[in-house]
C-alpha cells in the first residue's frame, strides 16, 4: 500500500481537458479522468493496490463462489424437511434449521444464487436500456433527444418501488428473472441521464466529426469512439445498478412480494419474521440472509468508491 502511494505521488495530475503537447518520447501520462483504455495494465495495477476495490471484490467473489459451488456440497434441497426443527448451528446443519426443520444453509446458498441473478439481470436490463437511451439521446440531439428525455423524466418521477409493488401484487412474480426484468425496467433513468450528459459533451469533440468524415455510421461511432471514453464510468454504473437491484429485490421479497417458485435471501427473512424467529430466538434463521445482503451490497458500494479512485487519478492520492 505504501508503495502504491509513493507511485501516485510522482504522477502528474493532469486534468482531462488540459492536455499539453509533450515531447515525443516522454512517459505517457496516466489515464486521466475517463481514460481507462489508455493503459489497461496501469488501471489494473492501481485497482489491485486499492484496498477498497480489493476488499469489496473479495467479499463479493467469495459470496459468488459460495453460491456457485455450494450446491455441490448440499445434501438437502432448500425446502426439504431435513432435520429437527429449530436446531441451532451444528456440524450437520452449519446454519441451523427453521421452525420446520429446513436446512438454513441450503436456503442461504440458493438465496445467494437468486441474489446474484437478480443483480446481474436487473442491473443488466437497466444498464442496456439506460445506456442505449443515453447514448442515442445525447448523440442525436434534437427531437429524438427531447422525446427520450421526456420518457426518462416520466419513468424517473414514477415511484418505481410502488409500481413494482403493484405489478408484483397484480401480475404475481413467479420467477427470479421476471422480478429482475421488472426491477431493471424501472431503475434505468438516472443512467440514461448521466450517459446522455457525457455523450453530449463528447459529441462536440472534433474526433467525432472526423469519424463521421470517415463514412462511419452512428452505431459504430457510439461503440468505437464514444463508449470507450466512458468505460470506467459505465463499469461503475453497472456496479451500482447491480447493488441497487439486489437491494430492491430483497425489499420486495421481504414484504412478501418475492418470486413464488424460488428461494431468495429476502424471502428467507420474510419467512423468519412470519414465523416469529425473532421472538423464538432463532437468530441463525435471519442473521445469515440479513448479513449476506448487507455485506454484498455494502461491498459493491465500497468497491465503487475504490474504482472511482482508480479511474480518477486526482483521487488516487487520498
Amino acid at each position: 500500500m505504501r508503495k502504491g502511494n509513493v507511485m501516485t505521488a510522482t504522477q502528474p495530475a493532469a486534468a482531462p481537458g488540459t492536455e499539453v503537447a509533450e515531447q515525443p518520447g516522454a512517459t505517457p501520462a496516466p489515464s486521466a479522468g475517463r481514460k481507462p483504455g489508455g493503459d489497461a495494465r496501469e488501471t489494473l495495477y492501481f485497482a489491485l493496490r486499492n484496498p477498497k476495490v480489493v476488499i469489496g471484490s473479495v467479499v463479493v467473489l467469495a459470496f459468488l463462489l459460495l453460491g456457485l459451488l455450494g450446491p455441490l456440497f448440499l445434501r438437502f434441497a432448500p425446502m426439504d424437511y431435513a432435520g429437527p426443527p429449530m436446531a441451532p448451528p451444528s456440524a450437520d446443519f452449519p446454519f441451523g434449521t427453521t421452525t420446520f426443520g429446513q436446512d438454513v444453509f441450503a436456503q442461504f446458498v440458493a438465496g445467494l444464487r437468486s441474489t446474484f441473478l437478480v443483480g446481474l439481470l436487473g442491473g443488466g436490463v437497466a444498464a442496456v436500456i439506460g445506456m442505449t437511451i443515453g447514448f442515442v439521446a445525447g448523440y442525436r440531439g434534437g427531437m429524438i433527444d427531447e422525446l427520450l428525455n421526456m420518457l426518462t423524466n416520466v419513468v424517473l418521477v414514477i415511484p418505481g418501488f410502488v409500481v413494482l409493488i403493484i405489478i408484483n401484487a397484480y401480475l404475481g412474480v413467479r420467477s427470479v428473472p421476471m422480478q429482475a426484468l421488472y426491477i431493471g425496467v424501472f431503475s434505468w433513468p438516472w443512467v440514461a441521464r448521466a450517459v446522455r450528459a457525457q455523450t453530449l459533451s463528447l459529441r462536440s469533440r472534433d474526433f467525432i466529426d472526423l469519424a463521421r468524415l470517415s463514412g462511419v455510421g452512428v452505431g459504430t461511432i457510439l461503440r468505437r469512439e464514444v463508449a470507450p471514453n466512458m468505460y470506467s464510468y459505465l463499469f461503475m454504473t453497472f456496479v451500482l445498478l447491480f447493488g441497487g437491484s439486489i437491494l430492491t429485490a430483497a425489499s420486495l421479497d421481504f414484504i412478501g412480494l418475492g418470486p413464488t417458485n424460488a428461494m431468495s435471501l429476502g424471502l428467507m427473512m420474510n419467512q423468519a419474521v412470519q414465523w416469529s424467529a425473532l421472538h423464538l430466538g432463532l437468530w441463525w434463521w435471519f442473521i445469515p440472509p440479513g448479513l449476506g445482503i448487507t455485506l454484498i451490497v455494502g461491498s459493491l458500494y465500497i468497491m465503487n468508491v475504490g474504482l472511482d479512485e482508480v479511474f480518477n487519478p486526482k483521487l488516487r492520492e487520498m
Binding site: 492536455e19 489515464s31 481514460k35 481507462p36 483504455g37 489508455g38 474526433f207 469512439e225 470507450p228 471514453n229
Partner: peptide, 8 residues
C-alpha cells in the same frame, strides 16, 4: 488535440 480520441 480534440481531433484525436485521447484514449487511443
Amino acid at each position: 488535440f480534440s481531433s484525436f480520441n485521447p484514449i487511443f
